[in-house]
Design a protein around this nucleic acid. Sequence first.
DNA 1: TAGGCCATCTGGTCCT
DNA 2: AGGACCAGATGGCCTA
Length: 207
Amino acid sequence: MMEEPFYDFEQDSTSDFPFWGPMDSNIQLQPQPENGLSDCSSLTGQLSPWPSFTCQSMFPDDAQISLTDLDGQALQLEGSAELDSSLLVQPKANKPHKHHRLIPAPPYKVQRYAANIRERKRMLSINSAFDELRCHVPTFPYEKRLSKIDTLRLAIAYIALLNDILISGCHPKSYVEQCMKNGYKSHKNAIWNTSDLTTRLSWIKWN
DNA sequence: TAGGCCATCTGGTCCT
DNA sequence: AGGACCAGATGGCCTA
């Protein structure tokens, strides 16, 4: 595989990389809860213990970047014809390690770079939607953060169960309790259509 | 250490 | 033409 020079942010954390720009002082780390339930209630009311994550950073100091930051980078790109390769590529002898962004050697077009920024921005918006969805599916207080695929599958199963509750006409609490006794069998074949889902729902405080 | 998960880069395709 | 969307490749982190 072709080895490409890379820019080492850790070796040169003070440089003014013209297109990433200085780190935004408003950027904040959002640590995961240490134990039990943290407050996601502003979004959901009750379900998920996980806060909203903006981005697992690839940037210095593990800071996080927001859509606004990417907007700024995109704006900085406007009007440029081509990146100055001397600003982009700083070959180093040591290997890239934790969260290094590899930047290809020239020729490197601004257009491609702008597309990368747009793509990251797009992925950030998708991830924020996943975070929002995580807050709406039932999770245990001690449960680790759901993966994207598990979030989708659990959401599908959850919707199916809510639909079943609607059709049954029962009170949700009694329906879940009944499922706990008899075992929940949905007509959908989702992975989460097991006692696992009803166990999760038993954590919910029904009104 | 292997496997799962994830972020990022990239080039192709579709859409406006 | 340029942006959005998508999927493949790659490499880092974490956990069992």
